[in-house]
Amino acid sequence: MITAEGITVAYGRRRVLDGVSLSLARGETVGLRGPSGAGKSTLLRVLALLHRPAAGTVSIDGTAITGTRYTVPAAVRTRIGVLFQSPRAAADPRLSLADIIAEPLRVARRSDISARVADLADTVGLTADLLSRRPHAVSDGQLQRACLARAFAHTPDYLLCDEATTMLDAATQALIATVITDYQQRHNAGVLIVTHDPALMTRWADRTLDLADLPATAR
């Protein structure tokens, strides 16, 4: 269980989140909606330990996490996978798709990197000829598949998706959702999806939260 309690985030004077609490259990798919600019993405980044809130704590299985980004131990960070809205922005343009997927494995000094990359690529339906290409030579949908494979690299217990299919065509969206659901069932992972598409939310999420209705413990 990953839990956020009393999360407050402000950019300058503008308070984006005000004491918001939310929890995500393993095995469930939670949908998060709310108007644009309401702080959905910010809340997701806080849960992913990428953004330090002004107040509030994130805990995993009851253990409060101190720090954000580099100050969180790598073993804790890699328990949470993230899939971003724009695959173009989330992929280093200089690296091939194979390198993009391999990067987290290299960081962890895994020995079986090439086999693992092939395995991950297969999971998301990327063929060998696509793996050798760089981001500019593949479509948004193919690049997002590579980003998903990268997010799976350390077999995270939780996967957070920030409008991850908004920019993709229907076929790729359905594929990404199918692959994530398969992964979730195999590894009993908790999945959070942020989306503004009501049809997608209804179809994909077990339960739906509206950011405006979330309990505000620290108000």
Partner: peptide, 26 residues
Amino acid sequence: TRPFIDAAISGGAGRLRVLTRHLLPH
């Protein structure tokens, strides 16, 4: 602030790794 740096951190990369692998080459 680019998402691919966030993705690298989320993948377990440390400061030095991000600096040498993602920042300096750019």
